[in-house]
């Protein structure tokens, strides 16, 4: 089986964020593989453990420093990686990102494309499904379980919905976006890290943009970034527990009117 895993570098979820010169600024914070993409890489590696002739290609789109997450994914067990270097990328334009990934994937063989359910920076959940449309394959999003048919030609995936789940069947090729609960990503082993050094990372710097046969005169433009409004400091209730409970219930009912 041939698997393509799309990965993105994001800020560590520990990071506190500032805005400086109209851009996100998080001094001193680590950059990591998007946590949902880790589930995708892990799932691919688990499939390979069951089906040893599986080949896993990682693809990322980003600046020079995105290379680190490819190393992580290769150390987890992926076979090769493609790095589309694009430092001018407008990260707010999800469709443009899907198109670029499509340009790299369309000429390759694949049975399964795995992505995270969304990146923890833009939280857009667009690139995976939009990419599936460009590739003309079905998509199942927010997946927490993937079961293959015995001959590995079909998939039944469990996906999250509000207050429940669905089980959806699809033939391959398929694109799935991975959700927490699918697996527990491994930490790269020392052996994995050593092996990753010898694995191929292809860099692409001059990507044509030809995707999209449908013309649509509409575009999206970033106006500004802002921080959440500062909240007033909390009213700390005092006294005996029972008195505090009474006071709170009254305040929520009469002052905040949320009950």
């Amino acid at each position: 089986m041939k698997i393509i895993v799309c990965v993105k570098q994001t800020l560590d979820t520990n990071a506190s964020i500032e805005i400086k010169d109209g851009a996100i600024h998080a001094p001193g914070s680590a950059r990591i593989m998007n946590p949902y993409d880790e589930f995708a890489v892990e799932e691919a590696v688990r499939i390979k453990e069951n089906q040893p002739d599986t080949d896993i290609t990682l693809i990322t789109l980003g600046g020079e420093n995105s290379r680190d997450i490819l190393k992580t994914g290769l150390a987890m067990g992926a076979d090769r990686a493609v790095h589309i270097i694009d430092s001018d990328l407008d990260d707010f334009d999800g469709l443009a990102i899907a198109r670029k990934l499509y340009e790299v994937i369309k000429d390759r063989e694949f049975d399964l494309v795995l992505c995270g359910r969304q990146a923890v920076d833009q939280d857009r959940a667009q690139v995976g499904p939009a990419l599936s449309v460009l590739l003309d394959i079905p998509a199942i999003t927010v997946v927490t379980k993937i079961d293959f048919s015995e001959d590995y030609s079909r998939v039944v995936a469990t996906r999250q919905i509000e207050g429940g789940a669905e089980r959806i069947e699809s033939p391959l090729p398929l694109l799935a976006t991975c959700q927490k609960g699918l697996n527990t990503p491994r930490l790269p082993s020392l052996k994995g890290i050593m092996a990753a050094r010898k694995k191929e990372v292809v860099e692409i710097t001059d990507l044509p943009n030809t995707a999209g046969s449908v013309e649509n005169d509409a575009k999206l433009r970033i106006l500004e970034l802002s921080l959440p409004p500062q909240r007033k400091s909390a009213i700390m209730l005092e006294g005996q527990p029972l008195d505090m409970a009474k006071e709170l219930a009254q305040a929520l009912r009469e002052k905040e009117k949320v009950l």
Binding site: I17, D121, Q122, N216, A218, K219, L220, I222, S226, P228
Partner: peptide
């Protein structure tokens, strides 16, 4: 919200096509 609410992005959706 972006970064799950650590910041907000204001965006313009422009042009006569579909948004």
């Amino acid at each position: 919200p972006i970064y799950s609410g650590k910041a907000y992005a204001s965006l313009a959706l422009e042009g006569a096509g579909l948004h």
